[in-house]
């Protein structure tokens, strides 16, 4: 297992490196002119870092949520966090709000995500703890409400505004810059570290509350801690670059095929796998039709899903 983990780490680093060098223009890192240097350090590097951070947040959150909700279909977006973030970001974009400069939309998205996470948490709270089924249903219900409101404001906005908002919602990494990264990194790192630290408890939660209790963990407390860390990670991810589908749902499953269901390995592997997949998807999205760019979220699904289906046919084991 250690070797498999090492392979995943190496592949992720390799993909990160490749995504810095390849693009509409191929950059030789040992022989750069001024433009290449600028593109590498100020356009591609922050972009690749954002891709890795977002992918990590989504991959790890997905693995955690599938565990605490005991549902293989759970992903960070099922809790409505993304639709809350999208609604809030669309309001900022279509309303032409700019009082925070280039930070306006990310801050709106983050706030929307956190508020939504808070509401879902409140709805899922009963008798001093969070209940998986309640969380899930509250999330789905809230998702529908926010998607409806989002469609409402989109259908009364101009076509031009609609396109801007659509592109944001589909995921846009092109505006990544160093100044936004520390905030995102803080939340994603904290969330990943907390989740990995609670991996043992998560393993127990998957097997049931009574079992968790017998191992000396408080299921309610553990679930709450994990839920909050996942909520913050997802919020940070959405605010960095919009919604990216597929990763949160399927990367944990792909990683389970590789290294099994032990959360201690699965969480870091899902984080790395998510980061690497988004990195490569972004690489494709900006290189395939230059000088145009495609939204990275479309690419993750197009390259990720066939691979997932292939694994699904080949492997026998299926579990959370």
């Amino acid at each position: 297992m250690k070797i498999k983990m090492l392979i995943i780490i190496l592949i992720s680093i390799l993909i990160f490196g490749i995504s810095l060098v390849i693009g509409p223009r191929i950059i030789n890192p040992f022989d750069m002119d001024d433009i290449s240097r600028e593109i590498l350090f100020f356009i591609r590097a922050p972009r690749a870092v954002v891709a890795v951070l977002m992918g990590m947040a989504l991959g790890a959150s997905g693995a955690v949520l599938q565990g605490i909700l005991r549902n293989p279909l759970a992903d960070p977006y099922i809790l409505g966090i993304s639709s809350g973030a999208s609604l809030s970001a669309a309001l900022a974009i279509l309303g032409g709000l700019t009082f925070l400069g280039t930070f306006t939309v990310p801050v709106f998205a983050f706030t929307g995500a956190v508020i939504t996470g808070g509401i879902v948490g409140m709805m899922g709270w009963k008798k001093g703890g969070l209940w998986p089924e309640r969380l899930l249903l509250a999330g789905v219900g809230l998702s529908f409400l926010f998607s409806g409101l989002l469609m409402l404001i989109m259908s009364i906005s101009t076509d031009e505004g609609l396109r801007k908002a659509m592109l944001w919602i589909f995921g846009d990494l092109s505006m990544s810059e160093w100044s936004r990264i520390p905030y995102g990194m803080a939340f994603v790192t904290a969330g990943t570290v907390i989740s990995v630290a609670r991996a043992k408890a998560l393993n127990a939660l998957i097997l049931g509350d009574e079992f968790t209790h017998s191992l000396g963990f408080s299921p309610r407390k553990e679930r709450s801690v994990l839920f909050v860390s996942v909520g913050l990670m997802t919020a940070a991810s959405v605010s960095l670059g919009g919604m990216i589908g597929f990763i949160g749902l399927l990367v944990p499953h792909i990683m389970r095929f590789f290294i099994g269901s032990d959360s201690k390995l699965l969480l870091p592997a899902s984080a790395l796998g998510g980061g690497a997949l988004l990195c490569i998807a972004d690489l494709i999205s900006r290189s395939i039709l230059p000088p145009m760019e495609l939204p990275a979220g479309i690419i993750t699904a197009i390259i990720g899903s066939p691979y997932f289906l292939y694994l699904l046919r080949r492997k026998n084991v299926l579990s959370i």
């Binding site: 509409p24 433009i35 593109i39 356009i43 846009d172 092109s174 230059p290 760019e293």
Partner: peptide
Amino acid sequence: IAAKSKSAYPKYSIEEILTQA
């Protein structure tokens, strides 16, 4: 400089702007 794009209002690459100056 965007005349070679595929659509009338393309989502454009920042890298390409730097290259095309």
